[in-house]
Design a protein around this nucleic acid. Structure first.
Lengths: 107, 107
DNA sequence: CAATATACATCGCCTGTCAAGGTATATTTT
DNA sequence: AAAATATACCTTGACAGGCGATGTATATTG
């Protein structure tokens, strides 16, 4: 069973930031990695992913640059900023609290 | 810090069903109880709550009846159905899976 | 007697998701 | 060589859930 978008909603940005904490990456790859990490249970649809990138960039949480691929399709890489790292910590904290609260409510 | 509605989204119906598993209740009370259970960290706004009630009723997960208050404002009570109990179990299962997946992604 | 609490309900906006569509390059299959 | 698939990017418009604002009515409290 895969996780509904309504449940994932609100975590999209944190998920992306978390991934960029490890290494710079690009859309297609991030998408694949997220699916792999969760045995295909989580999938961020492309449109969702790209609109999240826009928001994150607008917020100053990520920066973007074009890769220097000589073969294959061009890649737009994303890298997390200092502000992004701080924002991630807040997301993490929020997740811990939300988890506890929902656990409490669904007991 | 209170939990954002985007994180709560997708759990609203499960939270309500969970509450009705304990006892029949009415909107205002359910709202208060949810806040109390989570030290005011989760609040379902009235409009959110009532629209969730509509969906749950439509889905056949809850039934509704008017209380027989002789004093005070009238109360519309909600009670969970057998189908609702089954739906709740599915929500619970989904929550466990989502929790694991998000934990994995935010590691 | 004004304010606050209890209790229900609706309207319309906002925001994140995503189906559908598009572009371009490289590889694999038929 | 042509078709199919995979890699990689992006946009548009519709949809659904949350919720601010607003309205109704009754009871209590200062």
């Amino acid at each position: 069973m895969s996780i509904t978008s309504d449940i994932l909603r609100g975590h999209t940005e944190a998920i992306i930031l978390s991934h960029l904490l490890e290494t710079d990456s690009y859309g297609y790859q991030i998408n694949k990695d997220i699916m792999k990490k969760t045995d295909n249970r989580c999938e961020l649809k492309e449109a969702t992913l790209y609109s999240a990138f826009r928001r994150l960039e607008q917020a100053g949480y990520i920066r973007t640059y074009w890769g220097d691929e000589t073969v294959g399709a061009r890649r737009r890489y994303y890298s997390i900023t200092e502000e992004g790292r701080r924002a991630y910590q807040v997301y993490r904290q929020e997740w811990e609290e939300a988890k506890a609260a929902i656990d409490q409510l669904l007991k």
